[in-house]
Design a protein around this nucleic acid. Structure first.
Lengths: 366, 366
DNA sequence: TCAAGCTTGGAAAGCGCTTTCCAATATATG
DNA sequence: CATATATTGGAAAGCGCTTTCCAAGCTTGA
């Protein structure tokens, strides 16, 4: 039904080849007067090139596939925004898939594989894997990706990967977590608990490892480690669990002056600090603490990871490790679309010490 | 480079037609033994159908285009998540475009048009427009969409539209805003100011209209209306502006007991309430107020719109109008993919009264 | 003036699939 | 047993483009 190039060519009184050459960037450019005629005809008929046909003929689609876990999570949506920016700049469209939803036909755990297969089917020029599962674990995924790479596709993985030919965007998850823990210890905190993310995510694992090593360096060990999903709810539940496991007692409601007689671990020392593997989860943890009558940072301290944009408006401000999420998305897209770039690219962030861990707000505001 | 159907057919010793019939759902199903041979060959060779070629042959792509404003905004990312869910259930891939980034070739304001043209070029089966600009305004956009619809494409617009043949998902922006204003008035608030979003968004306009009408119904008028972008920063800046315009004075810092001698509009009445057209902006407004020494809700009240998921962890809890964002995305996708559905579908939400406007938390927590 | 080089438009061969016919075989009917 | 009717696999014609050759028509230089 839509007008096709043949019609434009006929209308302009030129051949198919000529019309193609003037309308869709070719090395050869027909004479200006002819070109003008063709463009006029195209405009008049409302011609829109059929990208599918072009893809078939040129064997390149102008598509880049992005697989995230949950697009509604600020971590992924910010990353996606960065990807989009670069993609649009280089005239690419982004195909989005999420691994958190019921996948087409694949079993629950195979959402990532299903997404990759779909992308391969659409012959995307590149695939960016940000879902952060342990991608190398599934041999079918690895096989599919390697075949894809061998037939010219580019693959970028957020994190380390064993897949031959894939580029990787290394993120200082472990080092960052270590640095964060160290900074808190230097500030005088002596007791820590950890809220880890889901065990199958290597991002989560790396961060927890970093926390633990940071503590170890100061001869400390976490009082407890609780796992939970990377969501606000997950942080909330894990915190409630932690409160029970550690037997934490909130100051009695009427102690408005803040008598910390029941403070854990002791009335005198610095309060317990909960190291959380991710900001979203940390936010949920803070809500749980507040709901149970703990003051932050007076009774319990909290630290997160990522520095997601929404943190800007939180009070008390969350201590965290800032990752340049948007920029990471851009880098990933660049690695995907500019073949000459060398991998791996390493991304580091910085420790951001704020109120939730007992630091005074350095004239935050804006 | 990737294996093609011809090779699978040869390997299995059948014709191209037969191979196609067994592998890619056709009405006719070859005999079971033959089918088995074909499937085995496909599996062995790692055959993945070329979706572009299929699209060309079948003239249907299995693609649905989604254009949002900013995928990093919780409003859009939650909506997108809903779209994704339905799309993946009906075996569709989502092509994502954002109108907030520098577009390929189109001038700054034309990002939406550029996105739509790209989608049309890729022959997506449907296009969902959630960018919420006044879509009907641009005749080129309208023309492109109508041509698209005439050639079989489906279009779903978030909000009203004049485009013939497009389905629309009507959202109770105005009615919701009115209901919210009314509820606050009933609660005793007498003085209001409005933080409006960008003027070119009809979502923003409808909400402001609703606020104003709600006030009018009680013979009130907003003390001031400040415009700003739909971002945290926009809310912050607009609030600072408002503070100056209204000459608001925060209680003196040392008045720890909360002596509201300088409270606006008067020490005795209920405090000023700022109605904000969107939650993200409202969060920024709260930060600005806090930074300037105002207590919420004691000195100034705030109300937002949307009830984005991240609100869950905010304190004080934000009074708002809850929109079923995720569900809206699902409905939009359903309208886009299930032709028999009748449009328009109307979405309503509900007033949620919380701490930020002086309501006591109804045992929120979780 | 003519050969040797350019430039330029067009014909036609794919790109990898789906699907319509057709022919061939198998099954049912008189 | 012969004829009519299903079934089933295959040949081939597209789907809408790009791009390689070709054949003209021009320009240039000796």
């Amino acid at each position: 039904m839509p007008v096709k190039l043949t019609e434009v060519a006929r209308e302009a009184g030129v051949s198919l080849a000529t019309a193609s050459r003037v309308l869709n960037g070719s090395a050869r450019t027909p004479a200006e007067d002819i070109a003008k005629r063709v463009r006029a005809a195209a405009e008049e008929l409302g011609y829109v090139a059929n990208a599918q046909a072009q893809a078939l003929a040129k064997s390149t689609t102008g598509l880049v596939g992005l697989v995230v876990h949950d697009i509604a999570d600020p971590y992924f949506s910010t990353f996606a925004h960065g990807v989009q920016k670069v993609a649009s700049l280089s005239h690419h469209q982004v195909l989005l898939a999420g691994t958190d939803l019921p996948s087409e036909d694949a079993p629950p755990g195979d959402a990532e594989l299903a997404a990759v297969r779909a992308f391969i089917s659409y012959r995307t020029d590149a695939i960016i894997l940000a879902a952060s599962r342990v991608t190398d674990e599934d041999p079918r995924l690895a096989a599919a990706l390697e075949r894809y790479i061998n037939s010219g596709g580019r693959v970028v993985v957020l994190g380390a990967t064993k897949i031959a030919g894939a580029s990787s965007l290394m993120v200082a998850n472990k080092a960052g977590a270590m640095a964060l823990a160290t900074a808190l210890i230097e500030h005088g905190t002596t007791h820590f608990a950890i809220l880890a993310g889901p065990a199958e995510r290597n991002t989560a694992r790396a961060r927890v490892d970093g926390f633990v090593e940071g503590l170890q360096a100061a001869s400390l060990v976490p009082l407890a480690t609780v796992h939970g999903p990377f969501t606000s709810r997950g942080g909330y539940d894990a915190t409630v669990d932690l409160i029970h496991r550690l037997g934490l007692l909130a100051p009695t409601p009427n102690t408005t002056t803040g008598a910390d007689t029941s403070r854990f671990p002791s009335p005198s020392g610095s309060p317990l600090c909960i190291l959380v593997a991710n900001d979203v989860m940390a936010l949920g943890a803070m809500t749980a603490l507040r709901t149970h009558g703990f003051r932050i940072p007076d009774d319990v301290q909290v630290a997160g990871f990522d520095d997601i944009p929404t943190l800007r408006d939180h009070s008390p401000a969350l201590t965290t490790y800032r990752l340049p999420l948007e920029q990471m998305g851009q880098r990933a897209a660049e690695l995907a679309l500019e073949p000459q770039l060398r991998s791996p690219v390493t991304i580091t962030g910085e420790v951001v010490l704020r109120e939730s861990a007992g630091f005074t707000a350095p004239t935050t505001g804006k």
